[in-house]
Nucleic acid binder design. Structure first.
Lengths: 243, 243
DNA sequence: AAAACTCTTTCTTTCGAAAATCAGACATGT
DNA sequence: ACATGTCTGATTTTCGAAAGAAAGAGTTTT
């Protein structure tokens, strides 16, 4: 009896491609479940548990876990299996500052090489993000679906900013670091829903406008401040609420 | 019958740790064989072949290949297996410029935080590298062992420069990018043995001295020029010798 | 001859069981 | 009581076989 490789064919929005092997499927689902906090930081990832949860065998799970390990979302001890990577302010800051380094350079190059198409995509993703954010501030209840939709739009916007940097490596690294830092912004960790404390939309707009004005240094400074503020806010929260 | 996990216990020099699982062993050996050109760029990596070559089963090999894929040393098509990542001037330059970005920042921080211990290690590794290089320029024949010894010393020196940057991520990224760029410096690709065309030792010494003088901008500029010169030289060679 | 189809071969991918290892409980001796 | 050693159950890691997919050869059809 075998899982007959009938995988989701829909090429969904938000940059998620249909997996072509079970290992790729395991990677996507595990990654998502770690990023969204379904599995808590530090929690052991027992193979048997995952096998049941995803209906897969050891091999594809193991491959997925190995990939996630190199992305620092999963930790593993020699013969003691895997666990969700732990969180700490040190790790958060290292991820944040590395992300700033990568995205600053990527943004510089994108501004240099960016064309009409680039601007169009930024405007479009900014608008989608803004719309989703407004929709959520108006309603009292925030569903899980809306939260992940907001997250997807947010990711799209930041992706659009650096899309024209002409470096596969910078884009992939930004992607990785986005996933790492996303874990720290989770309501399960910070207790509050995003977009409440600061004027996030305003910061995004400022970055966009500086980029369009080809004001490179200004755009980079704004982006840097944007990321540092977020991490500082999380650091404050963690200091208060965790012993 | 099973491979009884009796792994090399010796903690060898050059930053190679004894593997604790067969998957880790497979990773190390495969990585080395790809970096040193035992497997040519673009060459398919058939599982059966690897199984025989390393005396391992599919599972550990597959895990190793997956890890190497995220490091861009191995490429894989959906259901068509793995192959050694192809080489191209575009990829080389992307790797080079990304490396410059990472190591420049890492060097800046290392200079800021570096202590006596840091300087000592740089002096020591520079000396070892210099010694090995002199040994090789004097003798006519260059053995494979000497070449890999030189490579190890070279890696140690560049590692020592950025060792005190206080960022796991920057160090690991530098490591990865070192491996990527190393493939382009291979005699099998460039035709010539290293350290012949330029005054490599002199460039290294300049970087070291600028770092010790806490002349940050100068050190970074020298390091950048060092890497760009190498890639330019390889690019010239490739343009001449490959159609 | 070109296109479409089937068959065969080759290879990857997945599975589930077997082996190896670890962690903790229990017992033994000092 | 405190080490020290052994056993046991849980878990990871590895293996080899089986299933599935792709590429190419040969065959038939248009």
């Amino acid at each position: 009896m075998r899982n007959t490789l009938e995988l989701g064919k829909s090429t969904e929005a938000g940059g998620v491609k249909a997996p072509e092997t079970l290992a790729a499927l395991a990677y996507q689902r595990l990654r998502q479940d770690i990023i969204t906090g379904v599995f808590a930081p530090g929690q052991p990832l027992r193979l048997e548990l995952l096998r049941q949860r995803y209906g897969l065998s050891f091999s594809p799970l193991r491959e997925a876990l190995n990939r996630l390990q190199t992305e620092r979302l999963v930790a593993s001890a020699a013969l003691r299996g895997f666990s969700v990577a732990a969180v700490s302010t040190e790790e958060m800051w290292d991820a944040t500052e590395t992300r700033i380094l990568i995205e600053s350079e990527a943004l510089r190059r994108s501004i240099e090489y960016g064309d009409d198409d680039w601007e169009a995509r930024i405007v479009s993703t900014f608008h989608s993000l803004d719309l989703q954010a407004r929709r959520m501030t108006n309603s009292e209840t925030v569903s899980m679906e809306e939260l992940s939709a907001l997250e997807a739009r947010h990711k799209d916007f930041h992706g659009a900013l650096i899309a024209k940097c002409r470096s596969r490596r910078l884009i992939d690294l930004a992607d990785q670091l986005y996933a790492e830092t996303q874990r720290y912004r989770l309501p399960t960790l910070t207790g509050k829903t995003p977009a409440t404390s600061r004027n996030i939309a305003g910061e995004h707009r400022q970055i966009m406008e500086a980029a369009f004005a080809r004001n490179t240094d200004e755009a980079v400074a704004l982006l840097t401040a944007h990321y540092r503020r977020t991490s500082e806010s999380i650091e404050r929260f963690m200091a208060e609420h965790m012993s």
